[in-house]
Design a binder for these strands. Structure first.
Lengths: 133, 133
DNA sequence: CGGCATCCAAACTGATACTG
DNA sequence: CAGTATCAGTTTGGATGCCG
């Protein structure tokens, strides 16, 4: 019973396969940086501050497997490897760009909400016990 | 040096704060299922097959902290807790819906790419040794 | 029912060394 | 340069039991 309305996410729902594969921050960031043009491994790494070489390798391989990125070995010495977004990967740009635009637009609201939440935690009750004085 | 072009993601770039917080599959799925209306904890859990209670609790808290979801305790017995998408959270729907639509539209292409990739791995070279017959 | 505490196993990190 | 491999240390995950 592949229950696949957007109101429910069975683990056998086709959309889940993709949520599990590409809905993560590194995949999204890689596709965004590769949109500007092909990049070599370390060039990608430099642009994604904080990513480990292991995580990046895994993520690039997964993107390659899913047909969103292509990997091309340039047989010079020392060897160079270039990663390029595929036409299929490029069709993912509009949704990602929309997400990116949302983030830039709503960041202040999110930060305000976060500060309000943290303040609520610090003073959890209106009948707070005044430990000071 | 808050390097914040979309071509590069410094860890101190504001957009990174949001990529780190909401660009994960559970957050996205929660916001999609809550779009239809408020839901109680276990109702959300049932709709996200495979999520653990621990992961769901963490994720809902993070969404609450970021102002995308609100949490309301209904003091009946046994206690009920209702999660509702906030107006801010609702503004995230268009980007997420776009992503969801992309997944449904391009799933066949991705699956084809995946199979091609896996086949390439199984027979890595064109000068393959014919072990059979 | 919602969700926190606990325990253990699995995954990930960061550093470093090694290869083609 | 672009990886793979390894190892110790930390984080995360799943499973279970308990509480209001």
């Amino acid at each position: 019973m592949s229950d696949c309305r957007p109101e429910s996410f069975s683990s056998d729902c086709p959309s889940r396969l993709l949520f599990d594969q590409i809905a993560d921050k590194w995949s999204m960031m890689i596709l965004v940086v590769l949109d500007a043009g092909p990049l070599r491994f370390n060039a990608v790494k430099r642009r994604l501050e904080g990513v480990t070489q292991k995580a990046l390798t895994q993520c690039l391989r997964r993107l390659e497997r899913n047909g969103l990125v292509s990997r091309r070995v340039i047989p010079i010495s020392p060897v160079a490897v270039e990663y390029e977004i595929t036409p299929l990967g490029r069709t993912l740009q509009p949704p990602f760009k929309a997400l990116y635009a949302w983030m830039m637009a709503h960041l202040p609201e999110v930060e305000a909400a976060r500060q309000a939440f943290d303040r609520r935690l610090a003073a959890p009750s209106s009948v707070d016990i005044r430990l000071d004085r």
